[in-house]
Design a protein around this nucleic acid. Structure first.
Length: 178
DNA sequence: GAATTGTCACCAG
DNA sequence: CTGGTGACAATTC
């Protein structure tokens, strides 16, 4: 019996988001301007599953996700259904423990994981299917500059600006982000 | 600044 | 199993 994946759309100041859940929790949060393409990607990821749109059931979840994006910092404690290699799951869990407004770098995460290669971390983060709730935007390069971002530089910069701005942490006054 | 290499989980063949 | 690949980092021109 195929499992059921339900999804729906919401809009934020950073663009439209697609949220998809399984019976366990959230499996995907995606920024996308092209709804049709995003839905195709979702179905491609869960070919075995019954993927259907369910706006009313997801309204509450989407509202919470949108709130995290608009006012970063609060942890909505939404249930996540992490799907990936054990390594990826480990990385994602670590990301979720990063406090808002704080940034870390790939090397430090790698060290905690016991590997020495920062690229393992980047690979895992790049595979992160759940935008914002897994704060991959809080991971930047070791020299303090932004690294790439799956959902676009602009969004990453904006997310960081909101978090750091709301925490009033601008020690040097220099704009090190970019 | 740019080029070079370390290093390792993952994926395609 | 083998070879290629990285949202990186440290070193070396």
């Amino acid at each position: 019996m195929p499992e059921t994946i339900r999804y729906s759309w919401g809009s934020t100041t950073l663009g439209d988001i697609l949220v998809a859940i399984s019976s366990t929790g959230i499996v995907a949060v995606d920024f996308a301007s092209d709804h049709a393409a995003a839905e195709r990607a979702l179905r491609a990821r869960f070919v075995e599953a019954d993927v259907r749109e369910a706006p009313s059931e997801l309204a509450d979840t989407i509202a919470k996700v949108a709130r995290v994006i608009v006012s970063p910092g609060l942890d909505p404690k939404l249930p996540l259904d992490l799907r990936g290699t054990p390594y990826e799951v480990q990385v994602w869990s670590m990301l979720r423990s990063i406090p808002p407004g704080q940034t870390t770098n790939y090397g430090a995460l790698a060290l905690q994981l016991g590997t020495r290669d920062a690229r393992d971390v980047t690979a895992a983060i790049a595979n992160n299917p759940i935008a914002v709730l897994i704060p991959c935007h809080r991971v930047i390069k070791k020299d303090g500059r932004l690294s790439g971002y799956r959902w676009g530089f602009e969004r990453k910069r904006e997310l960081l600006r909101r978090e750091q701005g709301s925490l009033l942490s601008n020690p040097t006054g220099s704009d090190r982000l970019l």
